[in-house]
Design a protein around this nucleic acid. Structure first.
Lengths: 187, 187
DNA sequence: GTCTATAGCTAGATAGAC
DNA sequence: GTCTATCTAGCTATAGAC
């Protein structure tokens, strides 16, 4: 295992804090304290707090898709892939103690006050939806599904609803109920 | 029309700012400037910024249910009530320029850092779900629905997903797709 | 490239005159 | 009960020694 470089440590620490506490509630001073570096070092690697925020979003997107690929790589059946995606989001909620989706959170906090952030989040969610659409199209090719795009959109919405609901309620029932419905939608 | 009292004006101004900009991004100084009062007056009516936050949440909950009642009061068919609820959330998104759900936003921003806030949001969402459950049970009584609670849960999740997605994408397509699916689920 | 010291500003909150 | 003046603490960011 290579030694973690300073820049990577900063991103890791900042990401954890932005995610758990929120971006505005996380100060530069807290980041440098927990990363155990001086403030001059931080500003040597990042030009501003907003610059760190961009690095956070890039990292979270990479992690998301990496984790997703690991979750479905051994599965060939489209229907099982969808169920594995739901289980993946469920697992992310558990391991983060129901901290929610990073991209929903940052849009909720900053919104259109920072267009590059909201634009990034928009693109990220579009990629997630595209993943679902691809799988549903595989499924539709096998089973003559009536309207695969509508189906993909609604599976996406159900999962998003489950994530936000599980965040608010701090429990994961919603994912199981989504799985029940999705099993019905994908007979 | 009675003259708006100072306390009401503070709550109105603060609510708009908390909703549009976020709670942490809204300063006391901005609130008193836009409400056109002195800071001493604000702290005469509210003991802290957190106290204002509580008043904001109470107000938004009242407004939500008042608006909902207005939207469905003239409708008797359960299925149409569900569709009217979806249209209500859609209209809220349009009139707020896709600012999203106040309760999802505040939980995303503050989370468990303020348990009384997250608890309030949790209860609010439970009330929304109860509304759906009541309507779906009416529907089930007429049509021998297999599992009305599962159906209600999934309609709730679809709507939450549509709200968050319409907020991120700044357009309302999701609600129309939810309506299509719900029409299928309520034959 | 990492450090310390600090500038410059804004936050939430309080005191006391009127 | 509304006002002005002010406190303390925190913020992001920069300067300059090493």
């Amino acid at each position: 295992m290579k030694k973690e470089k300073v820049r990577e440590r900063i991103i890791r620490v900042a990401s954890e804090l932005f995610y758990k506490q929120g971006y505005n509630s996380t100060g530069i001073n807290q980041i440098i304290a927990e990363a155990d570096i001086a403030i001059g070092s931080l500003y040597n690697h990042f030009s501003s707090k907003n610059d760190l925020l961009q690095a956070y979003l890039v990292k979270e997107e990479l992690d998301w898709f990496e984790g997703f690929e690991n979750s479905v790589s051994k599965i060939s059946e489209p229907k099982e892939k969808i169920l594995a995606l739901i289980d993946y989001r469920k697992k992310l909620q558990e391991t983060s103690k129901f901290a929610g989706c990073q991209f929903i959170k940052i849009v909720s906090e900053i919104g259109e006050g920072n267009p590059s952030v909201s634009g990034f989040a928009r693109q990220h969610k579009e990629k997630q939806k595209e993943v679902i659409r691809t799988i549903v199209n595989e499924y539709a090719a096998q089973t003559k599904q009536a309207d695969p795009d509508l189906l993909a959109e609604n599976i996406f919405l159900l999962i998003e609803g489950a994530v936000i609901t599980s965040t608010i309620n701090r429990e994961n029932n919603s994912f199981d109920q989504v799985k029940k419905l999705v099993r019905g939608l994908l007979p």
